[in-house]
């Protein structure tokens, strides 16, 4: 398949290496927008192997990256004006950090890929520049042992690469730190929003069914009258856990993500009370409190995986306390809601 990022080829003796553009075009932009919304995300990848950019020679740097196209695009657009090589590893279309965590962006794949493309034919130096976050999967000293190539861990962000090179292949403290600012968090929200759709639809279905229950059995009138508002409340709880909590993450009290999600859920609940949107029945009000906070808390807890600073030990500890509470809240809330219908 002809990719729009290819500009032609570079011939080195008998080998033909694809030359890539360092410009992002409209198609790349649209592809990025779509994967952020979860569209074509599992298959947004390019072929692993060696690529050229600019006008590289045997002295040029080699940048190693993943074959997730969003990652590849982010790298090449930050290399404009430079000349060099890009060695793309087969990470199954996953970004560098996640792939490194799984080991696909790893020592074995890097060593094999260096041998497969015969990298020593194209450069007469032994410098490889890897993104720092690849270090979770790559043991630099083992790569050296197996191939002779020296792994230099570059900055965390591709946008710092030029500064890294200018400073003599050195990254300062700031370039080595992962951040998780507002923009970083916002970018993740659409995909999480789409990814959790089955939780959302499941919860909506349960609430919709309960809305039809009355002391007279199931009735269509109740479905149509209460089902809609019920579904809307579930949606707001979902929004609270998946959108509000990530957006305001550093400003919501608590360290546990589930607690942050609980607070966001409480806020949504209070707004609903204020708008007199929770019904007048005490059982119904309490049940909505429990259900909204349980949903919001659970989904906010899942944002630990999208965040850049939570540890496995920490998440396990958090879940031991939070998951039983979330299940308890959801169960009691559902039971109270049904009981309220008969009183």
């Amino acid at each position: 398949m002809k990719h729009s990022f290819l500009e032609g080829n570079v011939s080195i003796s008998d080998d033909v290496i694809p030359l890539v553009s360092t410009r992002i075009n409209f198609k790349d932009f649209m592809g990025a927008v779509m994967v952020r919304w979860g569209i074509n995300r599992d298959n947004y990848r390019i072929s692993p192997g060696l690529y050229a950019f600019g006008n590289p020679d045997q002295e040029s740097d080699v940048f190693v990256t993943a074959n997730y196209k969003l990652t590849f695009d982010n790298l090449r657009k930050n290399l404009s004006g430079l000349d060099g090589w890009i060695l793309v590893l087969d990470t199954k279309g996953v970004n560098v950090w996640c792939a490194a965590g799984k080991g696909t962006f790893g020592t074995i794949e890097l060593v094999n890929r260096i041998k497969l493309v015969s990298l020593e034919k194209f450069v007469n130096h032994k410098r490889l520049i890897l993104p720092q976050l690849g270090a979770t999967g790559v043991a630099a000293h083992k790569v050296k042992e197996e191939t002779g190539f020296n792994v230099h861990y570059g900055p965390v962000r591709a946008s710092d690469i030029k500064r890294f090179i200018r400073d003599g292949y050195r990254a300062d403290k700031e370039m080595r730190r992962v951040t998780f600012g507002f923009k970083d968090r916002i970018k993740l929200i659409p995909n999480d929003f789409i990814y959790g759709k089955f939780y959302l639809l499941g919860a909506m279905a349960v609430i919709f069914l309960i809305s039809g229950v009355s002391s007279k059995g199931f009735s269509y009138k109740d479905f149509s009258g209460e089902g809609g508002p019920g579904i809307l409340k579930v949606f707001l709880a979902y929004f609270s856990g998946i959108v509000i909590t990530p957006m305001f993450l550093p400003y919501i009290p608590g360290r546990h993500f589930s607690l942050k999600g609980f607070y966001a859920g409480v806020l949504v609940f209070l707004i609903l009370i204020f708008l007199k949107f929770t019904g007048g029945n005490v059982f119904e009000i309490i049940s909505w409190f429990l259900i909204i906070t349980a949903i919001s808390s659970f989904l906010a807890m899942n944002f630990t995986g999208s965040s850049t600073f939570t540890s496995l030990s920490g998440v396990k500890k958090e879940m031991k306390i939070s998951v039983p509470l979330q299940i308890g809240f959801a169960l009691i809330g559902t039971i109270l809601m049904v009981v309220g219908k008969f009183i």
């Binding site: 899942n302 995986g305 965040s307 920490g314 998440v315």
Partner: peptide, 9 residues
């Protein structure tokens, strides 16, 4: 080491 990810757990 491992993923600090509730969904993953």
């Amino acid at each position: 080491s491992g993923v600090g990810c509730a969904a993953g757990i």
